[in-house]
Amino acid sequence: MKILLLGEYNSSHYTLKEGLVTLGHEVTVLGLGDGFKNRLVDINFQNKFIKGFPRFVKRVIYKLFKVDINSLNIRKQFYKHQDLFKGNDIVQLINENTFGTVPKIEKELLAFVFEHNKNVFLLSCGTDYPSVKYAMDDNFKYSILTPFKEGRGSAPEYLNAIKHTSTPYIELHHFIYKSIKGVIASDLDYEIPLLGNKKYLGMVANPIKTEQIKYIHPVLNGKISIFHGINRSNYHKKGNYIFEKALKIISEKFKDKIEIITVENVPYKTYINLFNSAHILLDQVFAYDQGFNALEAMAKGKVVFTGAEKEWLDYYKLEEDTVAINALPDPIKIAEKLEWLILNPEKILEISQNARKFIEAHHNYIDVSQKYFDKWSSKI
């Protein structure tokens, strides 16, 4: 079949493409490369106004004339490639703001997609109206909006999430749901808010190309290496400030037994190689399930502090602290888990091996791609 995957979030769509191609389908991924991470796509729409002087110009023009020149630029690129948006057997949108334009233009572009393709599906991957509303209503124990409610950070850090509760984006949400055949969640953080939704087709785990990710056997005859990667724009949403407090506690207690590696805002290809020598990776706090970075680290055999809540344990029938470490929003509890690993290094080896087996069993990109195709086919 001819399949068009619109948008990219980490490498979820491109890895899905690789699985679908292996299964015999013709697939194109079109997107924005997921910002500074520079993720791979087949056709990359250029966002020229995200930093530096162009960003300043964009903000000035919007303030003076209420015109978003980035949206106009994406719109121009869309029509330049309009033939790609016609006659596909299946189209999947990465989320409710696939093109990253203002709602008015997003509706225009999506209307073209809906008009020229019969089978359009939505992936709930990244913030959208259902997940943000669910979090704002305090239905999660904690979420990426917990720091926002506590007054941490500045408003721009949360804009990409909070915007989904504004009237134009709520209208965009309803516009999309009227035309899609169904919606799929990429992990439990997006599944839970969708349970009971008539368009919901279920969860399909993120695809990981395990054959290209080498398992790195932990070497435990020296210092325990802890890796902390920071995306400054998501500093509070990911809970990096909590990790930093935990690292301060643990470094004062075990300074001769550990090595801490901290990096900020590096491209994806650089990031995934920087933590190769680490035993432990601190990923994110405010999540129930793992995102792409955590999954790839687990495939490499790292002990990952990430979302691994009871709901996740129950879903996959796992015991606590056997595959990943649930990073609770409490620096003392995180420090206690780190201490447990430092004092019991054999647990690092055990969790490392379990993590790799888990990714192979539940996230293999070909198996996952078949599950996507089965869900799409059920509605065609």
Rank of each mutant, 00 (worst) to 15 (best):
L5C: 08
N234H: 15
M298T: 09
I61F: 11
N160L: 02
E18K: 11
F292H: 09
I216K: 07
D321C: 07
N117L: 11
V204P: 05
K317A: 15
S377R: 13
Q284P: 02
K149E: 02
L201V: 10
T127E: 14
I50K: 13
A361V: 03
N221T: 14
D83N: 11
S369Q: 06
A324F: 15
P193Q: 06
L318R: 08
S154C: 04
H116K: 02
T101V: 09
K357F: 02
V219Q: 06
K245D: 15
K255M: 14
E211Q: 01
T210G: 10
K302C: 07
F65N: 10
L188S: 06
S154V: 15
H217Y: 03
L23D: 12
K163D: 05
I144G: 11
D137Y: 09
W312K: 04
F56L: 15
D330G: 02
I359D: 07
A185P: 09
F243Y: 14
V285S: 01
V113Y: 00
D83Q: 09
F286C: 10
P345N: 13
A135Q: 00
W340N: 15
I94W: 08
V91C: 06
S154E: 15
L16P: 08
D137P: 05
Y177G: 01
S251T: 10
E319H: 06
N139F: 00
K302S: 08
V60G: 00
N276C: 12
Q290T: 09
L122Q: 13
V303W: 03
N197D: 14
L282F: 06
D289E: 03
K357N: 10
K141V: 15
L23W: 13
A294F: 05
I43T: 07
F175E: 00
F286D: 01
P168Y: 03
S166H: 04
S131H: 11
M203A: 04
E106W: 01
E296P: 00
S225C: 01
K255G: 11
T167P: 12
G182P: 03
P168S: 10
L23K: 08
K300F: 03
K253T: 15
H217A: 13
A111D: 15
L188Q: 04
I348L: 14
A361I: 10
L194M: 14
A294C: 12
D137I: 01
N234K: 02
L4Y: 00
I176Q: 07
H174V: 00
K257D: 12
I43Q: 08
K257M: 02
K238F: 13
I162N: 06
H363N: 14
P207W: 14
T127G: 12
L64G: 11
